[in-house]
């Protein structure tokens, strides 16, 4: 136990974190490609056509994992933000800052694929339903976190203020998750649940889970990449960085 503690706290030093992130990125990115390719193949070629919704339902393989990631990443961002506020640890704030744009992109993707799915099945691109609205609020919260961080010049204050806002916004996540159960709305209920037997074919479920894992690995890769950029951006002075900046910049350009 004490061993692992030493190992982990070592990475609160940026000097150790930067190369660790660099080593993890190719593995995450490679695995993400594999999982997403497998998930898309299963979803588009193997999974049976839905008897109600026809082929249109196949967007579920992007929509549901994107929606999951949007909520999961928000909770992760809030966790890192809380850690940063509690431990006054700079790397935690940097992680929170790195997660926000990816989370916002997944939220946007969930809304966009939802609109594309809504048109053929509900006949409307958008309805003001509880889950859609709360997901839209999630997008606004992500944007708020990023805007607040960008508009405060003092980095230390920007970190702490946006972390606090991220924590405040976390109340929205359970609202999104339970919205289909609390309000009787147009959006269908959860298709996958931990307690009940899945309501869909096994191949569909497998494809969706593969896509979710793929999205998760992709997020890891992109977030770590952004983390490295944030580290470089904030530490242009220290000597250890001089050797790191050059390959770092090359990597970013490539």
């Amino acid at each position: 136990m004490s061993d692992s503690r030493v190992t982990w706290s070592k990475y609160s030093s940026l000097q150790a974190l930067y190369p660790l992130a660099g080593r993890l990125i190719p593995w995450c990115a490679g695995a993400a490609v594999l999982f997403m390719a497998a998930g898309l193949y299963l979803g588009f070629f193997v999974a049976p056509t839905d008897f109600q919704q026809g082929e249109a339902y196949r967007i579920i393989f992007v929509h549901v994992p994107a929606a999951w990631m949007s909520m999961f990443l928000y909770v992760m961002m809030a966790l890192w933000a809380g850690l940063g506020l509690g431990l006054k640890a700079r790397p935690s704030f940097m992680m929170a800052q790195a997660i926000a744009p990816t989370g916002a992109i997944f939220t946007f993707l969930a809304l966009l694929t939802g609109a594309l799915w809504g048109k053929p099945t509900w006949g409307a691109w958008w309805v003001w339903d509880a889950r859609l609205t709360s997901e839209l609020i999630l997008l606004f919260l992500y944007l708020g976190v990023m805007l607040l961080h960008a508009s405060i010049d003092d980095l230390r204050r920007a970190d702490r203020a946006s972390a606090l806002f991220a924590l405040v916004g976390v109340v929205n996540v359970p609202i999104i998750y339970f919205s289909v159960r609390w309000w009787n709305t147009l959006h269908q209920g959860a298709s996958v649940s931990m307690t009940a037997a899945p309501k869909m074919a096994a191949t569909m479920l497998t494809a969706m889970l593969l896509m979710a894992i793929g999205f998760w690995l992709y997020s890891m890769a992109v977030i770590l990449m952004r983390l490295r950029c944030v580290i470089l951006e904030r530490n242009s002075q220290p000597r250890w960085n001089q050797s790191a900046v050059e390959p770092g910049v090359k990597e970013i350009r490539a």
């Binding site: 606004f140 944007l143 805007l147 806002f165």
Partner: peptide, 12 residues
Amino acid sequence: LVALLVLPLFIP
């Protein structure tokens, strides 16, 4: 900025 931060939380 206050508007952008607070309005989403006002929605409920």
